[in-house]
């Protein structure tokens, strides 16, 4: 067991613990903050594995932007400080979540376990050039599709807000 393994295990355990806290806490904003910790420790895992760029993107996009938006949205709902007991999810939702989580775990395990059993796995060095070549070479079509999806979502949001404004409802914003 190398130092690297120890550090990786530390990060992994931290990530799992934070994730557990994120889904069990009764305070909405705490859940979001635990999610930040989870994503941050996962970024740490990426760093330990040598995937520097992926880890940085994880920090920049997830911790720096996505979570900020999540917390921002939570604050707009006047998330109260303190425990929030009516936060409990109904049983059927928990059941569905368990099923989805279990199937995802099985999927990943099916991919990862053969690798683990194999004694010597050669991990290709993940350089910035390698990652960009992969994104803009092999995976360029999924990448473009994703950007089209995001663009359509953006346009949809814009249209929704414009339709609401056209319907004559007062929208808070100052007319220019």
């Amino acid at each position: 067991m190398t130092t690297r393994d120890i550090v990786f295990i530390c990060f992994a355990v931290l990530a799992a613990g934070c994730a557990l806290l994120a889904v069990t806490t009764k305070q909405v904003v705490h859940a979001a903050l635990w999610l930040v910790a989870t994503l941050g420790t996962i970024a740490g895992c990426y760093f330990v594995l040598g995937a520097e760029l992926v880890g940085l993107v994880q920090l920049l996009i997830y911790v720096g932007a996505v979570i900020i938006l999540v917390i921002f949205a939570l604050m707009l709902t006047r998330a109260p400080i303190g425990k929030h007991d009516d936060l409990a999810t109904p049983g059927w939702q928990r059941a569905i979540a368990a099923v989805v989580g279990a199937s995802l775990t099985a999927l990943i395990a099916a991919v990862v376990l053969p690798v683990v059993t194999d004694a010597a796995v050669d991990i290709p060095a993940s350089t910035n050039k390698g990652v960009s070549a992969a994104i803009f070479g092999v995976w360029v079509w999924p990448f473009e599709l994703l950007s089209v999806l995001l663009l359509s979502a953006l346009i949809g949001a814009f249209i929704v807000s414009q339709v609401v404004r056209a319907a004559g409802r007062p929208t808070g914003g100052e007319g220019r």
Partner: peptide, 28 residues
């Protein structure tokens, strides 16, 4: 000295606002 230091600085700076958000929310 890391290979993608420009990106690393930006990633680090983006996290800083989290402290403001936490402080602002937790102050009640």
């Amino acid at each position: 000295d890391v290979p993608a230091s420009a990106f690393a600085v930006l990633a680090a700076l983006g996290v800083g606002i989290l402290g403001h958000l936490m402080g602002g929310w937790a102050s009640a």
